[in-house]
């Protein structure tokens, strides 16, 4: 890799940013986010713009705060006792941590897919129909069926399960379960989908299918993916952010980060020296 000498580590911490002229405009922005678990601070002053309808990847060694930050975006940290968030995260200029904001509405707009596939112990159909049902998105049964089928199609699962929509979702293979969870998230019609290491529990073939799916989904959804596989970040994302010890070290177009990291720690990580 031929690249200029990395910038020396600075005394006062500053995220290294590379602008991307081709990037879509950003509707989701974070500004100066700090997260505390009790006394312990888990995230330090994270600011980042997430471009619309593209895939942004958060990478970094485990415990670096990337998942914590992801969970801040749809306020999943609310359910953890003793967790405190300061700073602003805005969607279309609206602060997600505004006291008047409705978390339930927010989570309908920002969906999430978890590390381990977690289908509910119900049928495949019921799994996908769950979101539309609770949010009242379907007027009647045909409407609901339509939503379920189209969500399953978009998640690339429909062909495999169309004969057994009423079989339990827990009976599917791991990769299918994860796509079911993606279909479940899509069914609510979110604008943003957060994915927390969605492939870490899957085999390479299932991983390839999901990655392909993510690439297709980016046409309609803003996707944020946390991964500790740099190859995966390089394959699926347009923008990459590198976290280390609770700090956002560097962010920029994926191309640039992997070929031409400007921070030494980023380079150390992608060349395997820290991790």
């Amino acid at each position: 890799m031929a690249n200029p000498a990395p910038t020396p580590a600075m005394e006062s911490f500053q995220t290294v940013r590379t602008a991307d002229a081709n990037a879509n405009p950003a509707r989701l922005k974070a500004d100066g986010v700090n997260v505390f678990y009790g006394e312990k601070q888990a995230l330090f002053d994270v600011s980042i713009d997430i471009p619309e309808k593209s895939v942004s990847a958060f990478i970094g060694p485990s415990g670096c705060g990337k998942s914590t930050f992801l969970r801040c975006i749809n306020r999943m940290n609310d359910s953890i006792e003793g967790c405190r968030v300061t700073g602003d995260i805005t969607l279309d200029g609206e602060n997600l941590y505004d006291a008047r904001l409705d978390v339930v509405e927010l989570r309908a707009r920002i969906g999430m897919v978890f590390q381990k596939p977690n289908p509910f112990p119900k049928s495949i159909f019921e799994n996908v129909a769950y979101g539309p049902k609770i949010h009242g998105l379907a007027r009647d049964k045909t409407d609901l069926e339509e939503i379920v089928v189209s969500s399953l199609k978009k998640a690339g699962l429909f062909e495999e399960v169309k004969d057994r929509l009423h079989a339990p979702g827990t009976g599917l293979s791991g990769g299918q379960q994860q796509r079911l969870c993606i279909a479940r998230a899509i069914a609510v019609g979110p604008e943003v989908i957060l994915m927390d290491e969605p492939c870490s529990a899957l085999d390479p073939i299932a991983t390839a299918i999901i990655e392909e799916l993510i690439d297709e989904l980016r046409e309609n959804y803003t996707i944020v993916i946390v991964t500790h596989s740099m190859q995966q970040a390089a394959r699926v994302s347009q923008k990459t952010a590198f976290f280390h010890l609770g700090k956002l070290i560097e962010e920029g177009p994926t191309e640039g980060i992997f070929t031409n990291p400007r921070e030494k720690r980023t380079q150390d990580y992608i060349t395997g020296r820290i991790g």
């Binding site: 998105l137 609510v188 019609g189």
Partner: peptide, 9 residues
């Protein structure tokens, strides 16, 4: 698969 308009009708 075919990716059409958002599923929420």
């Amino acid at each position: 698969t075919d990716i059409t308009a958002p599923s929420v009708t």
